[in-house]
């Protein structure tokens, strides 16, 4: 059970049950869709970006606890940040989940709760789906991203 609690920390369970920033964003000027074909997770992200800053962000979709919580925490964190700051955060998160190096948990702040996913390789895609989708939305190339 200890490993399972590492993965399903209270913060993650809380965000998965009551996700923040969940819904559509009518006047969004950046969009992207993400899919995880392996498990059928699907995520739509809408952002309002003005003067290089993320003013508003919302997500919709269907996914497991890890992917839902990841999207919820992410949307909370990136609001008000510059695109540059968002990219740095995204890089740090992906490094936390997929990298070999010991993560700098202090720099990651709230995101550190996802460190448990490192021990569950098949769940890495769940944790990263929202962030990959965010990258696509900021590039705004209109292409759906998939974790495959």
């Amino acid at each position: 059970m200890s490993d399972i609690r590492e993965l399903y920390q209270e913060v993650i369970l809380h965000h998965s049950k009551s996700p923040r920033n969940f819904g559509s964003l009518d006047d969004a000027n950046r969009h992207a869709e993400g899919h995880n074909p392996l498990c059928g997770d699907q995520l739509t992200l809408g952002l309002i970006v003005e003067d290089g800053t993320v003013r508003e962000v919302r997500f919709q979709g269907e996914g497991c606890a890890i992917s839902t919580a990841s999207a919820s925490v992410m949307t909370d964190l990136v609001r008000g940040k510059s695109e540059q700051e968002v990219r740095a955060l995204s890089d740090a998160f992906l490094e936390l989940i997929t990298g070999d190096a010991e993560p700098d948990l202090d720099a990651l702040g709230k995101l550190a709760v996802f460190a448990g996913a490192r021990e569950f390789p098949v769940r890495v895609k769940c944790a990263t789906l929202a962030w990959r989708t965010l990258e696509a939305a900021l590039q705004n190339d209109g292409q759906a991203v998939t974790t495959e």
């Binding site: 399972i4 997770d41 569950f120 098949v122 769940r123």
Partner: peptide
Amino acid sequence: AHPHDVGTILDQEGIAVRTGH
């Protein structure tokens, strides 16, 4: 719980099931 989460928790108990579409 989402099927994928069920699958992960069951795996920790040594139980192999399929989750997904």
